[in-house]
Design a binder for these strands. Structure first.
Length: 820
DNA sequence: AGCACGCCGACT
DNA sequence: GTCGGCGTGCTC
């Protein structure tokens, strides 16, 4: 059939390249090569990458001489064809390269790339006189360190282009280059020590005698037996044994050599459930049973089912029951959660309730743990995977059900870098590829999703009753415009809010205060000249963080120490404009001395474990009031919280975005859901300057339907999703004029086709970030996927045309499909 | 994304 | 002259 035995492979590289590259497979590797395995290949002059084989073929008509595959890195494929197809779909839909998808999909430890190492050439004659200063410095550093990477040389010499120097050093035979793939993954084992199985009571005594002259070993053995006895076990973790007895691993190994101990290794298993915890019997309410039946029927019938259940209605229990079913039939379940909701609380609950191995996958876990989970998922050894958005990329073996909890949550959408995918939508695609079903759960579904449910594209199951008969919280709107007029405000708190906080605390109950802004205050204003310190590389004012006494840019991270006097006029008095969580915390503390207040935002939670520590402290009631951003709104379940306050709802409403109404409703509903989750009816106080806005009425009455209808008619009138899809185009350039002209040029050629479906070009609210000027264009794309592809191609051609103009070549264009 | 190559301004 | 910055094009 084939004329030669030559084999070629198409290799996917973890780079933003629009193409796939073909390599030649040497005969020695013919047996090993397989789609989905990683191969070591050279790309360009010196780089070596781990690429993935996306196809094996015998194409003879190559217009170039392909390079050869250096080695096959895996015994078994790390992904299947299905994953490769999924990647391709994502690349297509979200308009990025497959390499970028690969980058996002694979755990870092799979993505090896070489670092060029420079080493001394042993043939070099030590005559350093021929070297220039810089060359001499490199030579010196190498004699000391043995090897250097190009990056290290850059920092030693403090210059960017090291190329010339390196080349010259090679010419002078001082150094040679070394290219090596670093294998990052090291499987982690836990070592257990136990007695050699051949030992019985008699032989053990004998063995002890042989240790008469090795006092330490003898002591270790005695300690070991003592510890085993104490714990009622026959084997101990080696690390535990060493630590408890103050001995060393070497000592343990000595006893292994003498056939007294044996060591067994076991993969560390973080998936174990603490045997001391037991599951509390959960009794389904009548409503839940009914919803469960509906859910089961809907899932059997429809590809996607939307579970619209109000907060505290017990959605999680329904998920659990659905999961259990799938597991019993040997299927896998993917349970997606917003990153922020992946708390120990939820994970613990799941593990207790499920009879199978449960894996967790998200960015907080280190590389080795992720590789292990990856492998176990692929082998089908893990039944349930709980994870954040990137877990849609896991190599499922038998995926049968995907649950997307809080499906409206914007953190399912990746912003940067590409692929800018939405894990919720990608999961739906994945489910069709795996023949799995999807449940989207939310108390406040996105308008797009609910629209589909209403039109029977998705199944719809509603759950409208709180579990356990707890009444929905009583929501009250406080008009702070009026309160300010009547002088009933104390800093940001109305007297009414303060009063209720006090009575709540008096009853030994806890309070959550929500303020959607971190930092101390967004801006410091000079009292005399009105000067506001701004970021030097972005178009935003700096935020004052009192705790570190620094001004911080929330866009780029630029920081600056606060100067004593106004930079412009020398005035010492500064005034505070607007306010963030840190300021709220401080004012509140002044107002309520002695009350324990904590703050929860990215700044306090960033440090490792900060989040769970804070939650634990609040749970243990070591904290009375928790002041926080978005974070407090999501997924937390505190029994003793009966009051939730929203300091200022106006910021939510004034968001200049067509989704502002939907967002505000979602957030207020979510935050309100934190109040009174168990026994007692909770209370929610919302402070606002515009209490007449009807959105408050819907929040109070928990009237999602009216919100939905109103939003939908607006969206229809202005042609926004769900009546179209959006594509956001961002252009960046260091030069304002070029940014301006390029965006006008691109908008013009796009407009020829898109006409009134194009908005822009416009200057974004933050128009200048990290020394780049930004411009943006918004396009409305058709819903039907048949038309969609052609239009996306057209857009790509327009961008190509832009880039072929010499002036605009260096403009960076970023595409975002279905922006949030 | 790197990396090579080529062009060009600044300094010994 | 040479060093180092920067723009451009290519990578199987």
């Amino acid at each position: 059939m084939f004329e030669t035995n030559d084999i070629y492979v198409d290799v996917l590289l973890p780079l933003a390249l629009p193409q796939i590259y073909t390599y030649f497979v040497p005969e020695t590797l013919h047996q090993l090569i397989e789609v989905g395995k990683r191969v070591e290949v050279q790309f360009g002059k010196s780089r070596i990458y781990a690429g993935i084989v996306s196809a094996v073929h015998q194409n003879l008509k190559l217009a170039y001489v392909p390079k050869a595959v250096i080695s096959v890195m895996d015994e078994k494929p790390i992904v299947e064809q299905l994953q490769l197809n999924f990647w391709k779909w994502i690349a297509n839909y979200y308009q990025c390269t497959e390499g970028e998808v690969m980058q996002a999909a694979l755990p870092a430890a799979f993505k090896l790339s070489s670092e060029t190492k420079v080493i001394l050439n042993p043939a070099f004659s030590e005559d350093a006189s021929v070297l220039t200063d810089n060359e001499f410095m490199v030579h010196e550093a190498l004699t000391l360190q043995g090897e250097l990477s190009v990056k290290e040389i850059q920092s030693i010499l403090d210059i960017k282009s090291t190329y010339r120097i390196i080349k010259s050093l090679i010419n002078k035979q001082v150094i040679t280059l070394q290219e090596e793939l670093q294998y990052k993954y090291k499987p982690k084992f836990e070592y257990y020590v136990q007695l050699h199985p051949d030992l019985n009571d008699d032989t053990l005594d004998e063995a002890v005698l042989t240790l008469k002259r090795a006092k330490k070993q003898e002591q270790l053995l005695i300690d070991f037996l003592g510890l085993c006895d104490e714990l009622g076990t026959e084997r101990l973790k080696r690390s535990y044994l060493v630590k408890q007895t103050g001995s060393t691993t070497t000592l343990v190994n000595a006893l292994v050599k003498k056939n007294i101990f044996v060591i067994s290794e076991e993969q560390t298993n973080r998936l174990d459930v603490d045997p001391n915890e037991t599951l509390i019997e959960y009794k389904f309410s009548e409503q839940q049973l009914k919803a469960y039946d509906n859910l089961k029927n809907s899932v059997a019938e429809k590809q996607v089912t939307l579970l619209h259940g109000i907060t505290s209605s017990g959605k999680t229990q329904l998920y659990l029951k659905m999961m259990q079913q799938v597991i019993e039939q040997g299927g896998q379940v993917l349970y997606l959660l917003p990153e922020i909701a992946l708390t120990a609380q939820i994970i613990r609950r799941l593990r207790l309730a499920l009879s199978c191995k449960t894996g967790i996958y998200h960015s907080k876990y280190n590389d080795n743990e992720r590789i292990e989970l990856w492998r176990d998922v692929k082998l089908g050894e893990i039944g349930v995977i709980v994870g954040a958005r990137s877990s849609v990329f896991l190599p499922f073996k038998n995926l049968k059900l995907i649950i997307v909890d809080e499906a409206h949550d914007s953190s399912y959408k990746q912003f940067d870098p590409a692929p800018r995918y939405n894990a919720r939508d990608a999961a739906i695609k994945l489910s069709t590829m795996c023949k799995a079903k999807v449940i989207l759960g939310s108390a406040t579904p996105s308008v797009e999703n609910y629209y589909k449910a209403e039109h029977s594209v998705f199944g719809l199951v509603e759950l409208k009753e709180r579990y356990g008969g707890v009444k929905a919280p009583e929501i009250e709107i406080i008009d702070i415009k009026e309160a300010a007029r009547k002088k009933q405000m104390h800093t940001h708190f109305s007297h009414q809010l303060i009063k209720v906080i006090k009575t709540t605390l008096d009853q030994n109950e806890q309070v959550i205060l929500f303020q959607n802004r971190r930092g101390y205050t967004p801006a410091l204003v000079c009292n005399s000249c009105g000067f506001v310190p701004r970021c030097v590389q972005c178009d935003v004012s700096l935020t004052y963080h009192k705790f570190i006494n620094e001004l911080l840019c929330h866009q780029c991270g630029y920081r600056k120490r606060l100067s004593q006097t106004c930079v412009r006029c020398g005035e010492t008095e500064t005034r505070i404009r607007n306010f963030g969580t840190e300021k709220i915390e401080e004012d509140l503390q002044n107002l309520l001395p002695g009350v324990k207040i904590a703050r929860m935002d990215i700044d306090t939670v960033k440090r490792k474990e900060g989040h769970s520590k804070l939650i634990a402290a609040f749970e243990q009631q070591e904290i009375d009031i928790l002041v926080g951003t978005q974070m407090v709104a999501k997924g937390l379940d505190f029994e003793n919280v009966t009051l939730v306050g929203i300091i200022n709802a106006d910021q939510l409403l004034r968001f200049p975005d067509f989704r502002a109404g939907e967002r505000a409703f979602q957030l207020m509903t979510q935050v309100s859901g934190r109040a009174g989750r168990r026994k007692k009816q909770g209370k929610v106080l919302i402070q606002t300057y515009q209490p007449e806005d009807e959105i408050f009425l819907w929040v109070i009455q928990n009237d999602y339907e009216t919100l939905f209808e109103t939003e939908l008619s607006d969206r229809k009138a202005f042609n926004y999703p769900p009546f179209c899809r959006l594509m956001h185009i961002q252009l960046r350039h260091k030069n304002v004029e070029i940014a301006d002209k390029a965006s006008i040029y691109l908008a013009d050629i796009l407009k020829a086709y898109f006409k009134n479906r194009l908005n822009g070009p416009s200057v974004p609210i933050i128009s200048y970030i990290r020394n780049f000027y930004l411009r943006e264009i918004m396009l409305k794309l058709p819903i039907r996927s048949t038309e969609l592809k052609g239009e996306k191609d057209y857009i790509q051609r327009c961008i190509h045309q832009l880039k072929s103009q010499a002036d605009y070549r260096s403009v960076i264009v970023k595409l975002d499909v279905d922006p949030m």
